[in-house]
């Protein structure tokens, strides 16, 4: 490690000095984003737009915490890969499950019957 051109010990030292301030700033930023999220849900925009905004804001918060508070930014790349294996797999599984259960064929009978009843009442 120490014979690489850019010794991590020195680089780390420089980073440590400014870390305290950086942590506080990031925490403030996260608090502001949370505030924005709460404000966003009251806005009169299309649902898809609001969902996108909320998801993006959450992802930004998520990434700040894992890369700064959890040090991924300063750690070996392998830690990031390791965590993202689980994260991506979990995300993919969630997506697939929601797609499966969102499909028309998966609507539970109790709900479907109600919908049909509502429709027939309309007719």
């Amino acid at each position: 490690m120490s014979d690489s051109a850019h010794s991590p010990a020195t680089a780390g030292h420089v980073a440590e000095e400014s870390k305290f301030a950086a942590y506080v700033q990031i925490a403030m930023l996260l608090a502001v984003i949370t505030g924005v999220e709460i404000a966003v849900i009251g806005l009169p925009f299309a649902t898809w737009l609001l969902v996108t905004v909320l998801v993006v804001l959450s992802v930004v918060k998520f990434m700040f915490v894992i890369f700064y508070f959890m040090h991924l930014r300063w750690d070996k790349l392998f830690c990031t890969i390791l965590f993202f294996i689980g994260l991506i797999l979990a995300g993919g599984t969630m997506w697939a499950l929601l797609k499966l259960f969102g499909a028309e064929a998966s609507v539970p009978l109790s709900v479907a019957v109600n919908t049909v009843a509502d429709l027939s009442r309309l007719v």
Partner: peptide
């Protein structure tokens, strides 16, 4: 192995696409 679990459930009526 993580992308195929529903092949144990082909007869449960998941819909054509799935």
């Amino acid at each position: 192995g993580f992308t195929v679990w529903s092949h144990h459930m082909f007869t449960t009526g998941m819909g054509t696409v799935a």
